[in-house]
Design a protein around this nucleic acid. Structure first.
Lengths: 294, 294
DNA sequence: CCCCACCATGAACGTTCTTCATGGCCTCCA
DNA sequence: TGGAGGCCATGAAGAACGTTCATGGTGGGG
């Protein structure tokens, strides 16, 4: 029962095919067959169901797989952690994040990283929702995650900055130009909702605030990606509250809310960041993230 | 970079010595040296500091180690998960728990398990505190944990029962024989505190309740193990509130609190329990745990 | 000061993994 | 319906890897 066998299994399952997995792993399909068979022999039964078209996990495989995946990913992280501590001049740093942050706060950080730590390649894993991000971080896909503060996270969480939330309005909106807008002033408008809304104690922030203001937000449309939501709002579909920096380059109006809302951006990982990961956190705090480090 | 190498490293670090680790792993010390050296070569530098007396992790080793440990433990869990799903007639099921539960609720469950699933050996990992339990579960030491509901846990949590909390009094105490006792009736007494007190939203339950009752509990003694605390209380050192079933066989008086307190017993794991683990959860709910299944 | 405990090293042997070559099976399509 | 092609399995041979045996170096304690 070796790491290699698990790596092979994971790849075969991900690819749904021995042949494609073999190409990806740079071995022959025969080697895969042998190894998977050996793994199945040791595990006491078949893990994969060989279908005429591709493969699928057996019930036993489903019990086995998540652990194997975590083992494989942890091993990869171990290697990267060691390399990052050693040379700091080569290797990879895997960062997981949500799409909204990837387009918003990370580009500048990545640019500085490239100049200052050229040897360490950044590998970005972007997810559409925070749930996705957390789920994949738990499975160990990345060394470090950048995103909203996780509600439940068994590991170190560092606040690297805060974002100011603004209300997005189409160009020429009557409220445009105001210094700030109270939420009840738009109580009668439809809203653009997004999968990535900040959550507080299990409830969406906006719902809580609207309830306090005495109305229930009417949803015009619900999107996965924040960038989509922003364009909806800019087109006048409805009101959206989102982080200010996600609007750069768009033809729309943004007005701060009254009272001002802020949302934390955090970096979190399974173990205290060392080497490259630690430097990345420092860079995050120093660069580009409004309110960084507090 | 194989699992075996990581397994070797973990054992060497745990044992603090190549020689002892070699014995434990049933290989020669030479094999260990070779493998660790190979691992260090691939990792880009030494992971262990060779001291005249035993070994220690280098900074790089400290970055590497936790990931390696998780990889090793996950692999072991994968194997067990597969075997448990396969035969269900052999293998091991690793259960992590806190000492108080190990002596309180588990004996009966384990007895039934032995009769009904004799082939699957139970391996118990007992920890003194819930913090210890959670920390070790995160590192993947066991397939399933039994204990109080974890505050932050990234995985399935099942309530398997509730325990009634009672106030422990020495034999002949004036309050003994009462149907129930309010907490403010013992406001002037010293308390026996225990590391394993139920926690609610980050604060110890007892502190919250006493604050509500208008006093601050005065601590007579603080213990690690609940069983110690129970004996303290039975000896008249102070008042203790703990689960009723932890008193079986002791010469002391237990009086329910007014209002009644209950604490949940949960089973939690990293992935949905399958096979042996799933059956164990079922057994927990069916057996011996007051209020099981709700 | 010598001996013991402890880890490193090099060469030989046994095991394991990969490849090459080939075979079986199912599906799609003429 | 029969052949072509995609897909995984299998068996044998060679390469790669891990283990052992034997031995060397180093520091601490009697």
């Amino acid at each position: 029962m070796s790491l290699r066998q698990m790596q092979y299994l994971v790849t075969v399952v991900e690819q749904g095919s021995f042949t494609r997995a073999a190409e990806l792993l740079h071995v022959t399909q025969s080697a895969l067959s042998h190894q998977i068979k050996a793994l199945e022999r040791e595990s006491g039964g078949p893990l994969l169901e060989r279908l005429p078209r591709g493969v699928r996990l057996t019930p036993m495989g489903r019990a086995y797989f998540p652990h194997a995946e975590l083992a494989v990913r942890s091993a990869a992280q171990a290697r990267r952690a060691a390399l990052a501590t050693a040379g700091a001049e080569s290797g990879e740093l895997h960062i997981a994040t949500v799409h909204a942050h990837a387009v918003g706060v990370l580009p500048e950080v990545c640019a500085r990283w490239g100049r200052e730590h050229g040897g360490v390649r950044l590998v970005l894993h972007e997810y559409a929702t925070t749930e996705d991000l957390f789920a994949h971080m738990e499975r160990g896909v990345a060394d470090l995650a950048v995103g909203p503060r996780p509600e439940k996270w068994p590991g170190p969480v560092t606040v690297v900055g805060t974002e100011e939330m603004v209300m997005v309005l189409p160009p020429g909106d009557p409220l445009a130009g105001r210094a700030a807008v109270r939420i009840d002033e738009v109580a009668d408008r439809p809203w653009v909702r997004c999968a990535l809304e900040p959550v507080l104690a299990g409830r969406r922030w906006l719902d809580v605030e609207c309830e306090r203001a005495g109305f229930t937000p009417r949803t015009a449309v619900r999107t996965q990606h924040t960038s989509t939501a922003v364009r909806m709002a800019a087109a006048g579909v409805g009101v959206l509250i989102t982080a200010a920096h996600e609007l750069t380059g768009l033809d729309c109006t943004a007005v701060p809310t009254d009272p001002p809302w802020r949302r934390e951006i955090t970096a979190f990982s399974r173990v205290p960041p060392t080497g490259a990961a630690a430097r990345f956190v420092t860079l995050l705090r120093e660069t580009g993230v409004p309110g960084g480090g507090r």
